Simulated assay, not measured.
Amino acid sequence: MARHVTDFNGILLFRRDYAERDYLVKFLTQEFGKKMFLVRGAKKRGFKMTADILPFTVGRYVGDIADEGLSYIRTARETRQFQAIGTDIFKNAYATYIMSLVDTAFPDSQQLPDWYHRVYRALELIDEGLNPAIVTNIVEIQLMPAFGVAPQLQGCAICGRTDLPFDYSESYGGLLCQQHWAADPRRLHLSQRTIYYLRQFSVIDLDRIHTIQVKPTTEHALRQLMDEIYASQIGVHPKSKRFLDQMQTWAPKLMADPTDDD
């Protein structure tokens, strides 16, 4: 098995216990795609890289990179944590879900320089306080082609028109213009505001986003649409998404003012 020692840029996707003293740590790297690393002795007291392999860490490392199978981390050069994500349960949940989707969408060792940058930017935006639900929607929409689902989101799936009101049709794999709504009686009956954001999010550059204001009703509609597409057409439902769903049900209670009268 070919190996070589080199620097790499990595976003820590997850880590898990391995044997008594070690961790398995999975990184999305800029240079080599997703790679699993064995970090020996990581549980020992005084381990010098403890802070460098915490969840939601990004940085530059030196590794013994294997073409296939486990690689090894030798040292960390410069790392930092997304502090707000690490300390906020809501940001944490959305960020974890994004990383789970990316981990599921691509095979290990496939070079993904574009997605490395997108994931980094998505985490950066969430960490800076942008609405994590909307950042997650953008990632979900732009990630669909990696799962083999590429709905037509810029024009009508039947005639290609771009100048009429739209609705979403699962049967036709994308948008239908108003002239062809009758072709699918089971179209989703989305509002034009929801359609607007769906179209924008499919092509938006995360680097150009600094603020997004979306009404709660539209945010809810986008969440329902993504859930429907991922459940019925993609078939992906990571454990992190189940936790996110649960969190959304008890979040209003958690955030309520305990002094409010019934």
Rank of each mutant, 00 (worst) to 15 (best):
M99E: 09
L153N: 03
L176K: 00
Q81W: 04
Q111D: 12
M144Q: 10
M247Y: 14
E20T: 12
F82C: 09
Q246G: 15
Q233F: 07
E170A: 11
G59K: 00
G63M: 04
F14V: 03
A51L: 08
R45P: 06
H117C: 03
D88R: 00
I158Q: 04
K34G: 06
Y172N: 02
G160A: 04
K43C: 06
E124K: 08
E140P: 10
E78Y: 06
H180I: 02
R15Q: 08
M247F: 15
T29S: 08
D167S: 00
L38M: 15
A93S: 15
L38Q: 07
Q154F: 02
K241R: 13
A84C: 06
R40H: 13
E31L: 03
G33T: 05
G86D: 13
R118K: 13
A182T: 04
L38Y: 08
Q110L: 09
G69P: 15
I11Y: 04
T259F: 11
A133W: 09
A256M: 12
M226H: 08
R193N: 15
G10C: 05
A76D: 05
D52E: 14
F14Y: 14
A146K: 01
F166V: 02
A105K: 00
T87V: 13
A133E: 14
R208K: 12
L198G: 07
Q246Y: 15
T218D: 13
F166N: 03
V39Y: 10
T249K: 10
H117Q: 10
L190S: 04
V102F: 09
A221L: 03
M247K: 04
P258D: 13
A76C: 04
R21K: 15
D227Y: 09
E140T: 01
D262K: 05
E68G: 05
R242S: 11
H210D: 14
I209H: 02
K34H: 06
M144G: 07
A42S: 14
I89R: 03
I11W: 05
R21S: 15
L222E: 07
Q233A: 13
C159Q: 01
D7P: 01
I11L: 14
K26T: 13
G174N: 01
V5Q: 10
A105Y: 08
F56S: 08
M247C: 09
W250V: 14
F37C: 13
D17A: 12
E140G: 03
H117G: 04
A93F: 12
F8W: 06
P165G: 11
A146S: 10
L13C: 09
E20L: 08
L130T: 10
I65N: 04
F147R: 03
V62L: 11
H4Y: 13
E128C: 06
Q224E: 12
R208G: 13
T259V: 06
G174V: 01
M99H: 05
T50A: 14
T6F: 03
V25Q: 02
Y18V: 07
A221G: 12
L153P: 02
G174D: 08
L244W: 11
G10S: 07
R161V: 15
M49T: 05
E228W: 06
R208F: 05
T249S: 11
A84I: 04
Q179E: 15
G59A: 07
H220Y: 08
I195L: 12
V119A: 05
